[in-house]
């Protein structure tokens, strides 16, 4: 059981955003997508989840092409968590998580739907917030509620766009640890876009480096996190140090030319 992305290309108007992207990932693995701003990380995630269907190339999940699925069938397989959410009409945390059951319900939620939603809440330890209004929560808490909703959606493929971008250090660790546990426990496939290379190294099973519309390196942390790749992708000088058998990146100061 795996996800295969084959020769995916995406154009926005006439501009090529993504060209010829291919990679595989097995169930139970967390894939980290690294790359500079504006290089199409978010677009790639939206293409994979078919929110923006790619013009060419295919996404094969469980041996089936995603193009053959209806919008509702896709929603039962893929769940997408955006960078941030805000609502003028905020609902309670429970009701927000219950929305994850929409692909399965026909007008009325059942006891089963409620059980799934509450289990997701408990999985992310959000019980204390259950009846709060979602707009009353902090950014990190809200992010976790949306992740809980994704879990309630029971996807096979979980896609998260920078789930840690506006969280503090402890919250970043918490959220990634929870995602990782869920991926292992439920044997999901998860893809996250992430900026922090060290965090990615700590939690992801596999990394992809995105630059100039395509993948320039893919593999395990120790194979692709090196000074050369980082310079090529981000244009910064770094020193690589080894911690717990993982490659971590330490930034070097630019030589100022004055």
């Amino acid at each position: 059981m795996s996800l295969q992305v084959r020769n995916l290309s995406f154009k926005y108007h006439r501009d090529n955003i993504l060209e010829n992207i291919s990679f595989d990932i097995e169930a139970g693995n967390l894939l980290g997508l690294l790359g500079p701003n504006g290089m199409g990380k978010s677009t790639l995630l939206k293409c994979i989840s078919h929110i923006l269907p790619p013009q060419s190339g295919n996404i094969i999940i469980f041996e089936k092409n995603l193009r053959s699925f209806s919008i509702k069938e896709k929603a039962k397989i893929i769940s997408y968590v955006p960078q941030s959410t805000y609502s003028s009409f905020p609902m309670s945390v429970v009701d927000t998580v219950l929305m994850g059951r929409i692909p399965y319900i026909n007008m009325k939620i059942t006891k089963n739907d409620k059980d799934k939603a509450f289990a997701a809440l408990e999985m992310l330890n959000l019980e204390d917030y259950a009846f709060k209004n979602i707009n009353e929560l902090s950014g990190g808490e809200r992010q976790q509620v949306i992740i809980a909703r994704s879990i309630a959606q029971e996807p096979s493929l979980l896609i998260l766009d920078e789930p840690t971008s506006n969280l503090d250090l402890k919250n970043q660790m918490d959220v990634l640890e929870k995602i990782k546990n869920i991926v292992k426990e439920k044997k999901l496939i998860a893809i996250i876009a992430i900026h922090d290379i060290n965090l990615a190294s700590m939690f992801c099973d596999k990394l992809l480096l995105l630059k100039d519309r395509t993948i320039i390196a893919e593999g395990q942390n120790k194979d692709i996190i090196n000074e050369n790749n980082i310079r090529q992708v981000y244009g910064v000088e770094t020193t690589i140090i080894k911690v717990d058998n993982r490659h971590h990146v330490v930034l070097k100061k630019k030589k100022t030319s004055t």
Partner: peptide
């Protein structure tokens, strides 16, 4: 009224996410 859950989704999410929940 049959669409109450659809309205819940549409009122509180961007279109992209609404789509992600299986709604056009």
């Amino acid at each position: 009224y049959r669409q109450a859950w659809v309205f819940n989704a549409m009122a509180s999410n961007e279109d992209e996410l609404v789509q992600g929940l299986g709604i056009n």
